[in-house]
């Protein structure tokens, strides 16, 4: 399959595909981060995670329209406002959902899975009713357009770089939050020993709600970033849910670094394979390899050995 390409061409292809893979990586990381908090830390399966992301995307779409209509001068900055609002909107919805639904189901993980699937259907239909079935796209601000030519053959789009920087920035923020802040300690205390954490004075219910809310909020930010590289439709979120769960499980559910490493390997594999095979076969092979590895090593790549 390599015949017909000269060596520099091949190098350029791999670089370009690698870069395309990096954008996919960013999307995976952004989606998986929220899930790593909710699933990895709390053990809750949120099948509506994709819809929380799409909510963020729609918020971004609305904000971009509002800026275009009322503050065209500041249009270049709308994205940052949108990001904050997307976080708040998804986070708030997440907290409501936790209060109304999830908290009753902590001991029944499989049921949570079904209930959140129901939620995802309702959200999808809500999006469809509000925004129409057609996909919508945002206008990318001027400064994010264009690309940086690296060599004659290699060009790197600026919006791609921006999304990547964003993904890494948010990862760093989540890391600090989970492992370096008092709040993160509380979250980990609650998830490791709920009764004990309650006994030492942690408000476990509030911690659960905040954790779930922040996980959903991060998904909202992912949605905002998502608008920079693709259009948004009511069911766009569902398309990613399987990949995202696989990323989190593959990385070893409780490990943040593992999530990032697994997002990287899956996205790179898929993107590079994509050039040589059809897109669908690249995806099939990537997913099959991941599922195969998970069957051999169910604890994921970065899990610890513990006494059960």
């Amino acid at each position: 399959m390599f015949s017909g390409y000269s060596l520099p061409e091949l190098g350029a292809i791999i670089t370009m595909q690698g870069f395309a893979g990096l954008i996919l990586f960013s999307v995976f990381v952004l989606m998986a981060l929220g899930l790593a908090i909710i699933f990895g830390q709390m053990g809750v399966i949120n099948m509506a995670h994709g819809e929380f992301m799409i909510l963020g995307a729609y918020v971004t779409y609305l904000v971009s329209n509002a800026f275009a209509a009322y503050m065209p001068a500041l249009f270049g900055a709308y994205f940052f406002v949108a990001m904050v609002l997307a976080f708040c909107a998804s986070g708030l919805l997440g907290m409501i959902v936790e209060w109304a639904m999830i908290r009753h189901l902590y001991k029944r993980p499989l049921d949570t899975l079904l209930a959140t699937w129901g939620l995802s259907l309702i959200l999808q239909q809500t999006f469809r009713s509000l925004f129409g079935a057609r996909e919508v796209g945002v206008t990318i601000p001027q400064w994010m357009m264009g690309s940086l030519p690296v060599t004659d053959l290699i060009e790197i789009p600026i919006n791609g770089i921006f999304v990547m920087v964003l993904a890494l920035g948010i990862s760093a923020a989540v890391y600090v939050m989970m492992y370096r802040s008092a709040w993160g300690r509380q979250v980990r205390a609650v998830t490791q020993n709920r009764v004990m954490a309650g006994a030492v004075g942690i408000d476990t219910e509030r911690t659960d709600r905040m954790t779930f809310g922040i996980g959903c909020g991060v998904a909202g930010v992912a949605g905002a970033a998502f608008t920079m590289i693709g259009s948004t439709g009511p069911t766009s979120g569902q398309a990613y849910i399987v990949d995202t769960f696989l990323v989190v499980v593959f990385g070893g559910a409780a490990s943040l670094l593992g999530t990032i490493a697994s997002a990287f390997s899956i996205s790179q594999a898929q993107s590079i394979l994509e050039f040589f095979l059809s897109g669908s076969m690249a995806k099939v092979i990537t997913l099959l390899v991941v599922v195969g590895i998970l069957m051999l090593r169910p604890q994921g790549l970065f899990a610890m050995k513990l006494r059960k």
Binding site: P109, S280, M295
Partner: peptide, 29 residues
């Protein structure tokens, strides 16, 4: 592959869902 390695519950559900996804992509492709 899964039950011998004690995979169950949620993990099993997710993996089987992934298999459904793979099957569809494969058939369509």
């Amino acid at each position: 592959a899964m039950f011998r390695r004690r995979v169950s519950g949620v993990y099993f559900a997710i993996i089987t869902q992934a298999i459904a996804a793979i099957a569809t992509i494969l058939i369509v492709g």
